[in-house]
Structure formats: C-alpha cells, structure tokens
Amino acid sequence: MENNKVWFVTGASKGLGLTLVKKLLSIGHSVAATSRNLSDLSKAVGEYETFLPLSVDLANEESVESAISRTISKFGQLDVVVNNAGYGMLGALEELSDKEARENFDVNVFGSLNVIRKALPQLRKQQSGHIFNISSIGGFSGNFPGFGIYCATKFAVAGFTESLAAEVKSLGIKATVVEPGYFRTEFLTSGSLAVPNNPIDAYKEVRDSQVAHQNDINNQQPGDPAKGVDVIIAAAESKNAPLHLFLGPDAYHLAKAKIADVQKNMEDWKALATATNFDEVKA
C-alpha cells in the first residue's frame, strides 16, 4: 500500500465518514475532513499531526474553496476526495414540499459538485487523483416507497460520476460512485433522516416504510462500516478501480434484481421500441 496519500473527506463527524477518517489516520495517511460542527469532528477523531479538521458549509462555494486551499497549503497535495456528506429523506413525492426536496438536493448533490469543482484544479495540475462520490443502492434502484427524493439525489450522484469519469480519464484522474446497502451507522436516526412536515395518511406503504426504517432496521443494519471503508481504501489503491462500487451483499442482490428487471423490460418491448427509425427510402 502507498502510504501518506492526502485524503479530503466530507461529512466526517459520524457514520461511514468518521470510520473512514479514523482508519486512514491509523494506517499513515494524511486527512483533511469536514463537518458542520468543528468541535464534534475534533472530539470524534482526536488529535493527529496528519489530521486537518475543517468547518465547512458545503453549499457555500467560498467555504469549500477555502477548505481545499487549506488542505493543499498544509499537505502540499491532494490525492483522494470523498464526497460523503449527505442525509436521508423519507416521504412520498406528494408529501414533500418543494423546499424539503430542494434542501436534500442542495446537500446531497450540489454540495458534492461544489467540492468537485474546487478540487479539480489541483488534481488536473497533478495529473492524478481519485474522486469517490458516496451514493447508495438507492441511487441505482428506486424501488423504495417514500425514498423518491432521496433516490433522485443519489441517482444524480451516480449520473454525474459516470460523466465525471469520462471527462477526467485523459487527465489521469479517476472517479468512482460508491453504492452501499444498509450499514450500521447513524443514518436512520433523527439527525440524519428527515421526514415530511405534512404527512398524508393515504400513503400506507410510505408510513410502513417509515416505521420499519426508524424502529426495526435502525441499529440492525447488516453492514459493518469498518469493512465497508476497507473496500473503499482498497479501491483507492487499485490500478483497476471500479466506476461503480457496490458495498454489501444486499446492495449486490438489489442491483442484480434491477438489472434483471431492466433486461426483461427491454426484451418484452424490443420489437416495438427498436422500430422507431425513419424508414429507408428504397430506390
């Protein structure tokens, strides 16, 4: 393993981000990590010479640019960027207001885009680097009642990561979208999972899903965050890093089911759906 890479990790005061930061520091990497609350982050990680805690508003481009600049100033380079910050949103599309939906996009999508925009000049200068964008299996399969807006944000992350990978490949930079299943973090607690301000009783499946996620699934998720971050680190060290990195057997199962459904839809409708070109004019 190459030691002393410089990592920049957002949303690092808890969950997968905190687990990743601790592991990176323990094996000799330098880490700049962000949180909305600097004291929470510093307390959770502890003091390391190779650790730079940063209070950052990811929705503010100047705040993001300052954090990237401070990282480069302290460590002299930037090797791996992990866009991990985000939160869940559980509510039917009709229930969620425009404001609630846009706030989820602001953090989960536009916050990551701000980081990418400000990090790429340094990565282009180096002609090297790797950007990991943390999506979800919900960014590949949207078959989760009540998670439509959240899934939409994570589908967006997957989509722009695919385009990013194509844009920066010739510059020596890699991009990976990470699509985890259920990992045992604080993701389903009230601080990380938003619910509608105005729920509609008619959506039984959504209410059932809300109860299940908040009461039954929370703290019972099968995924071990420590094992999950080991896979991300392995991908960062690999010469053959994946574009899509599914994490967890549940993520693999759901991805395979989605692929099979899409293939069936394509075959069922192939004759009609591919007969859409202009007819050739025969002489």
Rank of each mutant, 00 (worst) to 15 (best):
M1L: 15
E2R: 10
N4M: 14
N4R: 10
V6Q: 03
T10L: 03
G11C: 04
S13M: 09
T19V: 09
V21F: 08
K23D: 14
H29L: 04
H29R: 04
N37L: 01
S39C: 05
V56W: 09
V56L: 01
L58A: 10
S63P: 00
S66W: 01
T71F: 07
S73F: 00
F75P: 05
F75G: 08
G88D: 01
L96E: 06
S97R: 08
D98P: 05
R102A: 13
N108K: 10
N108C: 12
F110C: 00
I116A: 07
A119I: 05
L120I: 10
P121G: 02
Q122T: 08
R124N: 01
H130L: 02
N133M: 15
G138D: 12
G139V: 14
C151Q: 00
K154S: 02
A156G: 15
E162M: 15
E162A: 14
S170R: 11
G181W: 03
G181V: 06
T185N: 13
T189A: 11
S192H: 04
P196D: 09
N197V: 15
E205Y: 06
A212N: 13
N218Y: 14
Q220L: 14
K227M: 00
G228C: 11
A234S: 12
S238E: 00
K239V: 11
A241G: 02
P242Y: 11
L245T: 05
Y252P: 05
N265M: 08
E267W: 15
W269K: 05
T274K: 04
D279Q: 09
K282L: 10
